[in-house]
Computed example of a mutant assay.
Amino acid sequence: MAATNQHPLPIKKLSIIIPAYNEEKTIALILDRINQVKLIRNIEKEVIIVNDCSTDNTELAIQSYISNATDLSINFFKYIKHDVNQGKGAAIHTGIAQATGDYLLVQDADLEYDPGEYNTLIKPIILGSADVVYGSRFMGGNPHRILFFWHSIGNKFLTFLSNMFTNLNLTDMETGYKMFRTELIQGISLKEKRFGFEPEVTAKMAAVPGVRIYEVGISYYGRTFAEGKKISWRDGFRAIYCILKYGSFNISISANKRVKATV
């Protein structure tokens, strides 16, 4: 599906996909923060929670919140549970398929990203400039928790490698905050079931003809492994594999286009 270069229709609804796995301690907190956000231009909020077969009380915490919350500014709730744990990427796929908003984004349940910055991501869209907006943890003057040196080097290396294949100049390909025009991302076939979602969706989105990708600075309140962070070094190697796999596919497409253009 090609992106449009015309001024987009007004955004009436934003779908917020929350992939959740063993997040009983934080799921109600993140829902509260989403509820407190007032989107510009009175954009409605659709929250889609995908419980990826949690083994703790995540489901009970979600149901309790939905049943007992008052003064809700969230206009629509959807709750989906996987019968088998499939991975974060698979939960995101489920959420994307269920989204009915004009645009969508993924919100982790672990409090690392601030819903208060949704409007920052939305701004390039309502100005008619963007189809996709990435929230970068490495640009701007927003607060960032100081954590692991080698993790930051790893993130920057993965972004650099991804940029080589996509010909983008992103500063944070691995960011958890990505906002997409829903029709656009629903038209893309996504395969990665775990943390390979980020490089795969970046490579495939970059291949969409005419797509307009923007980047804005965001805050980052990172967690340590002791605090529940789930990504591991194995996921880093998988990300490299995904960059090479999907990026090489993009290069072959571009090469074919150049050959056809010269015939």
Score class of each variant (00 low, 15 high):
1 M>W: 09
6 Q>C: 04
8 P>W: 00
8 P>Q: 04
10 P>D: 06
11 I>H: 02
13 K>T: 08
14 L>S: 01
14 L>W: 03
18 I>H: 02
21 Y>M: 06
22 N>F: 10
25 K>L: 12
33 R>P: 00
36 Q>Y: 13
36 Q>V: 07
43 I>R: 02
44 E>D: 14
47 V>T: 03
49 I>Q: 02
49 I>E: 04
49 I>V: 14
49 I>R: 00
58 T>P: 03
60 L>M: 14
63 Q>D: 10
66 I>P: 09
72 L>N: 11
72 L>H: 09
73 S>V: 08
78 K>M: 14
78 K>L: 09
80 I>T: 12
83 D>C: 08
86 Q>G: 15
87 G>H: 05
93 H>Y: 09
95 G>E: 01
99 A>Y: 00
101 G>E: 00
115 P>N: 04
123 K>V: 09
125 I>Q: 01
127 L>G: 05
130 A>M: 05
131 D>G: 09
132 V>L: 02
133 V>C: 05
133 V>D: 02
133 V>G: 00
133 V>R: 01
134 Y>V: 14
134 Y>H: 10
140 G>R: 07
142 N>Y: 10
143 P>I: 02
143 P>H: 03
143 P>W: 00
144 H>E: 08
147 L>M: 10
150 W>D: 10
151 H>W: 14
160 F>I: 02
160 F>W: 10
161 L>D: 06
164 M>L: 08
164 M>V: 12
166 T>A: 05
168 L>N: 02
171 T>K: 15
173 M>T: 11
175 T>Q: 01
177 Y>M: 12
178 K>M: 15
178 K>Y: 06
182 T>A: 07
186 Q>A: 05
187 G>F: 02
188 I>E: 02
188 I>R: 00
188 I>C: 01
190 L>I: 12
192 E>A: 10
192 E>M: 08
193 K>I: 13
196 G>N: 01
197 F>N: 00
200 E>Q: 14
207 A>G: 09
207 A>S: 15
207 A>C: 14
210 G>Y: 05
210 G>M: 06
210 G>W: 10
211 V>A: 00
214 Y>D: 04
221 Y>G: 03
222 G>H: 06
227 E>A: 12
228 G>Y: 13
230 K>Y: 07
231 I>Y: 04
232 S>H: 07
235 D>F: 05
236 G>D: 13
241 Y>L: 06
242 C>S: 08
243 I>K: 03
243 I>A: 06
244 L>C: 09
253 I>L: 13
254 S>F: 12
257 K>S: 12
261 A>C: 13
262 T>M: 15
262 T>P: 04
